[in-house]
């Protein structure tokens, strides 16, 4: 796995006005703006559900989890990820809301810097590192962790 060439490729996107990137392998598809069906009584970070390839999948607003500022928006895309859930040892398909998708770029492992409070506002535990593209810092997200954690916290939230 480590030697697979696309291991070094990242999808960069805008999490509603904040530059982010995710490993290309975990991305299944980028969907156009579409109607998201709200599920009553859901926590804030869950936008609702959409139908994807015949299944119902949740759509997550990453800003809530990542503590990003909430600004209104008109257009959006949904980046569909496959994430590995450790608790149930299965793969979950989850949609993540983003403003738009920028590019797929190759980043050599050497060019990835450790995340710190100087180069990203995202909590370090949710990142795989940071890289510089055209003079701008882009944070690489650990999607497995974010989506698994968001899912776990949902269940913990419910306890209260």
């Amino acid at each position: 796995m480590q030697n697979r060439p696309d291991n070094n490729f990242y999808l960069t996107f805008n999490a509603l006005y904040y530059p982010l990137a995710a490993k290309v392998q975990s991305v299944v598809e980028v969907l156009e703006k579409q109607r998201i069906t709200k599920i009553p009584k859901s926590p804030k970070q869950i936008m609702g559900v959409i139908s994807f390839r015949g299944e119902i999948i949740p759509v997550i607003d990453p800003r809530i989890i990542l503590n990003l500022p909430i600004q209104p928006f008109d257009n959006f895309v949904i980046i569909v990820h496959n994430v590995h859930d450790e608790r149930y040892n299965e793969t979950l398909t989850v949609g993540v809301l983003a403003h738009d998708v920028s590019n797929v770029i190759e980043i050599k492992p050497l060019d990835i810097l450790p995340a710190s409070e100087f180069n990203t506002i995202i909590p370090k535990k949710y990142t795989l590192g940071v890289f510089k593209d055209s003079g701008k810092f882009i944070t690489i997200l650990d999607t497995d962790k974010i989506l698994a954690i968001s899912y776990n916290t949902i269940h913990d939230d419910n306890q209260n």
């Binding site: 069906t37 009553p40 009584k41 859901s42 559900v49 299944e55 119902i56």
Partner: peptide
């Protein structure tokens, strides 16, 4: 009926969802 999946295991009122002919989702 499609399951809502583990993300929604917390909710108590819905047993699943169904994709309607026009693509809308009904709970």
């Amino acid at each position: 009926l499609k399951p809502l999946g583990p993300y929604f295991a917390y909710q108590e009122y819905f047993s699943g969802a169904s994709i309607l002919g026009d693509g809308h989702i009904a709970l």
